[in-house]
Amino acid sequence: MIRMRELHKSFTVRVKAGRFRREKRTVAAVDGVSLTIGRGEMVGYIGPNGAGKSTTLKMLTGVLTPSSGEVSVCGLTPVPQRTRLALRIGVVFGQRSQLWWDLPLRESFALLRHIYRVPAGDHAARLRRCRELLDLDEFLDTPVRQLSLGQRMRGELTAALLHGPEVLFLDEPTIGLDVVSKQAVRSFLAELGATGDVTLVLTTHDLADIERLCERLVVIDHGRVVHDGSIEALHTRYGSRRSLVADLEKPLPDGFELPGASLTAVTANGHRVTFTLDSATAGAAVAGLVAAVPVRDLSLVEPDIEDVVARLYAER
C-alpha cells in the first residue's frame, strides 16, 4: 500500500552568519527513508521533535513534493495524482480540523459525503458503525465549535473514514485528550485495525497508543530510520528486561540469590522485593522465590517502552 525508496526532503533556511549578514543553509528533514507497508498493517511511526515524521506524512499525502526519491501510496504518486489519492486515503491531524466550525457535526458529515461522492447507502452504513463505536449520537446535532476536544476528535476520525479509505494517516490523534476519550479512540482504532480493511500509519508522542495498536514500530531520527521492527525487537536490542515484584511474608534470607535474576530493590522493611529477569523465565523465577520464602502477592512488570525509546534517542 505504501512504498518509499530513498525518500529525501530538504528545506533551505536563512541563518545568521555575522552581525549584518545571513546565509542560506540546506536542512535535510527526511534523509533517505526507505519503507514498504503492506495492506492492513498498523504501523507506529515515531521520533523526537524535528525528526521528520510530519514531513514524511505530508509527502505521503501529497502536501509536499519530495526533493528526491520515489514514493507511492495505493499505487499512486501522491503529488501529481493528489486528487485521485484523496479519494483513497483518510487523514487526521490532531492540530487541524476537516469539520465545519459553525455547522452541526451531522451536517459536516453530509457535506463530506457530497465532496467525496459517496453513495448514500455506503455513507449511512459507515456513519452508523462510527456512531455505535464512538458514541456520537449525543452530540451529532451540536455545532463543532461547541464540542469538547475529545468529542471533536471522535468526529474527525469519523470524517476521515466516511468515504471508505484504504489507508488512514493519523498524526497525534489523542493529543490533549482525557483518559476516557483516549480509551474510546484507542478501542475504536484497535477494532478498525482488526478487520484488516484499512492500513494505518500512526505518529504520536504517546507511546501507549503505539503499544495498544501497532505490531510494527518505525523509529526515525534526524530524517533517517533507526529502527524498523516489532516493539519486542526494540526491547531486545536495548537490553530491556522484565521485572518480578513480590510481597513477602518475611524478608529474604541473607545472601539469597535467584538464578537468572538480579535483586534490584528491597522496600517495606524487606517485605517487598524487585528482581530483574536476566536470563530466567518468569515461571522459573517465581518457582525459585516461592521455594525460598512464603509469598503474599507478586506481579510481572513489562519493560517501559518510553524508557527504551528515550535511551534510543539519547544514544543517537
Rank of each mutant, 00 (worst) to 15 (best):
A233T: 00
H271E: 06
R296M: 04
A280I: 08
L289I: 02
L244T: 07
G260W: 02
K250A: 15
E232S: 07
I231L: 08
S240P: 02
A246T: 01
V266K: 00
S279Y: 10
D247K: 15
E257V: 15
V273F: 04
D297I: 00
V295R: 00
A261H: 01
D297A: 01
V293A: 06
T281R: 08
P294L: 00
E249L: 13
S262K: 13
A261N: 03
T264S: 08
L234H: 07
P251E: 12
I231H: 03
V245S: 09
S243E: 15
A285M: 10
G260L: 09
Y238R: 11
A265Y: 01
R296G: 00
V290L: 14
V273L: 07
V266T: 10
A265P: 00
E249I: 06
V286E: 09
A246F: 02
E249F: 08
V295F: 06
K250E: 15
A285F: 11
L244M: 07
G239A: 09
A284S: 12
G288K: 10
V293P: 00
L248V: 04
R242Q: 14
T274K: 06
A268S: 13
G255S: 07
F256M: 04
Y238L: 15
A291T: 10
E232N: 05
R296C: 01
T264P: 00
V286K: 06
R296W: 00
D297M: 00
V290H: 08
A280W: 05
G229C: 13
R237S: 12
L258H: 01
F256V: 03
L263I: 05
S230V: 02
L263N: 02
A285N: 09
L277M: 10
S243R: 15
H271C: 06
R241S: 13
L244D: 02
T267W: 06
L234D: 02
N269C: 02
D278S: 11
H271G: 00
P253L: 05
S240F: 10
V266I: 11
D228V: 07
D297Y: 00
G239Y: 10
G288I: 11
D297W: 00
T276H: 08
G229R: 04
D228Y: 09
D228N: 12
V286M: 14
T276Q: 15
A291D: 14
H235S: 03
H271A: 03
A284R: 11
L263K: 06
L277N: 07
S262L: 13
N269D: 13
S262T: 14
A261S: 05
P259R: 06
L244A: 08
S240N: 09
V273Q: 03
P259E: 09
A246H: 03
T236S: 14
G239F: 09
R272T: 13
L258D: 03
G288A: 13
S243K: 14
V293S: 01
V295M: 04
K250G: 08
V266E: 15
G270M: 05
N269H: 09
D254N: 10
S262Y: 03
S243H: 13
R272Q: 11
F275C: 09
F275D: 04
T274I: 10
A292P: 01
A285K: 04
S230I: 07
S243V: 03
L277S: 06
